[in-house]
Simulated assay, not measured.
Amino acid sequence: MILAIDVYYIENRAKTVGILFEDWTVAKANINAIVTDYIENVAPYQSGQFYQRELPCIMSLLAKIDLSKINTIVIDGYVHLNEGKLGLGGRLYNELNQTIPIIGVAKKSFSGNSQYLVEVLRGESKHPLYVTAIGMQLETAAANIKLMAGKYRMPDILTFMDQQTKLFKSE
């Protein structure tokens, strides 16, 4: 099972959404489950220390999921930052005792980490997704993201997940 995770913040509160699906090519209509979690008193954003804000939210969501059934986690962000420094995905991988491969998918480039990523063009977009990975071959991770259903830059499931997090504004 594949788990995609995203977090959305309003002030010091966060909503984390996890979407479980079986196959990289599955359409949004065939999602296995959606898991949500809410946290109060989230740490403030600190430049270069994003993981300190996001990782506790992700770990809280993961406590609700049988991780023995998860073979890959996809996050909104980077696994590696500049000079190989661990980003959110790398820190999550270590937090999970390096047992579940992590794929990071980002929409914006991060200076100095080009050797740790593959740019993936999807659909007719001229703008790539920036894919990083740990616990699996980077080329495999990029190929999996390219395979995901959807005709636009962002795979349909990741777009749907983003929409689910943003429902927090009206909850």
Results as ranks from 00 to 15, higher is better:
residue 2 I to S: 07
residue 9 Y to K: 05
residue 119 E to T: 08
residue 29 A to V: 13
residue 137 Q to S: 12
residue 170 S to D: 00
residue 166 K to R: 15
residue 101 P to Q: 08
residue 54 E to D: 08
residue 168 F to R: 05
residue 150 G to L: 04
residue 47 S to E: 01
residue 92 L to N: 00
residue 168 F to W: 06
residue 140 T to D: 15
residue 53 R to V: 12
residue 125 S to Y: 08
residue 137 Q to F: 07
residue 82 N to P: 02
residue 163 Q to V: 08
residue 119 E to I: 05
residue 157 I to T: 08
residue 134 I to H: 01
residue 153 R to H: 06
residue 165 T to A: 07
residue 73 I to E: 02
residue 68 S to K: 11
residue 95 E to S: 14
residue 106 A to N: 05
residue 23 D to E: 11
residue 77 G to K: 03
residue 74 V to C: 06
residue 101 P to D: 02
residue 43 A to Y: 07
residue 22 E to L: 15
residue 51 Y to F: 13
residue 16 T to P: 04
residue 32 N to S: 14
residue 35 V to Q: 09
residue 134 I to N: 01
residue 147 L to G: 09
residue 140 T to Q: 14
residue 48 G to H: 00
residue 73 I to F: 04
residue 18 G to D: 00
residue 87 G to I: 08
residue 74 V to D: 05
residue 150 G to N: 04
residue 116 Y to L: 02
residue 163 Q to T: 07
residue 105 V to Q: 00
residue 142 A to P: 05
residue 101 P to I: 02
residue 37 D to R: 09
residue 16 T to H: 07
residue 52 Q to C: 12
residue 11 E to A: 15
residue 23 D to L: 10
residue 166 K to A: 08
residue 9 Y to V: 08
residue 118 V to K: 12
residue 103 I to P: 02
residue 103 I to M: 07
residue 71 N to V: 14
residue 29 A to C: 06
residue 71 N to G: 11
residue 84 G to M: 03
residue 107 K to L: 07
residue 73 I to D: 01
residue 45 Y to R: 08
residue 106 A to V: 07
residue 129 L to P: 01
residue 27 A to G: 15
residue 136 M to G: 00
residue 145 I to E: 03
residue 100 I to H: 05
residue 102 I to T: 08
residue 12 N to V: 02
residue 151 K to T: 12
residue 126 K to M: 06
residue 16 T to G: 03
residue 156 D to T: 10
residue 44 P to E: 12
residue 19 I to N: 04
residue 105 V to C: 10
residue 69 K to E: 09
residue 157 I to Y: 06
residue 160 F to Y: 14
residue 60 S to P: 10
residue 47 S to N: 13
residue 66 D to I: 11
residue 108 K to E: 10
residue 55 L to P: 10
residue 91 R to Q: 15
residue 55 L to W: 06
residue 147 L to E: 11
residue 51 Y to T: 01
residue 57 C to Q: 09
residue 136 M to T: 10
residue 103 I to H: 04
residue 23 D to H: 11
residue 78 Y to Q: 04
residue 58 I to A: 06
residue 151 K to P: 00
residue 47 S to C: 09
residue 20 L to E: 03
residue 37 D to C: 15
